[in-house]
Amino acid sequence: MYNFEYTKASSAGAAAEALKADEDAKVVAGGMTLIPTLKQRLAQPSTLIDLNGVDDLRGITVTGDTVTIGAMTTHDTVARSAEVAKAIPALAHLAGLIGDPAVRNRGTIGGSISNNDPAADYPGALVGLGATVKTTKREIAADDFFVDLFETALEEDEIVTEVSFPVPEAAWYMKFPNPASRYAIVGVFVAKAKDGVRVAVTGAGPCVFRVPEMEQALSSSWSPDAVADIKVSDDGLNSDIHASAEYRAHLVTVMAKRAVAGAK
């Protein structure tokens, strides 16, 4: 990697100020994407601003109808949280499917969603549950947060501080992992809540997306059969050496069906 300066942030606000002062600086959370990128010399930040010392960015709070997770909370913490498992079992399940134990013990929810890797799991949960992202500047609805491939609504000097998930009536996440990287080739998050049904797909396209036809069908009938014959178009879906766009489109239906079947 190239040389860079390293500082530990005292707070999210201080980190945001530092970003504002130096446009070549970068924030590091778990570093699960950033560190390999640096090692491959694909990025050359002037300074790494480390959020790992900011304790108030960590932690899980469950109130009656909301689960709030601090940005620096690791995947492992979410996966093992009895409170999360009770309130939104699908969310704890999803966190437990991310990467491998080493990744889950370093990687954070804030880092994952800020990076917005098209094959990451968390975007599925955020959009599937209609979560709200809180930042150093504002609150952003998940539907508006994920913009495009590796692109979010975050401004250059804006840092995610926490994510709030409304507790659904039932939800589940089915993941078809890339056999090598264990990222999602296709991940489908389904949720049934008071304000309606959501079906969010990650991995298949350049950015997480919802499937309105499935949401409508499930609103009428919350059952696997309701989505069994709904195909998404393969137009614009990802294609690589592991899975063609056509195969991904097929998997969206299969995973959606299984997610509904597994919902709890």
Binding site: P179, A180, S181, Y183, D240, I241, H242
Partner: peptide
């Protein structure tokens, strides 16, 4: 080489 890392070469 498209399968040039463990992201794509499946051990």
């Amino acid at each position: 080489l498209l399968s040039g890392s463990y992201m794509d070469y499946t051990m």
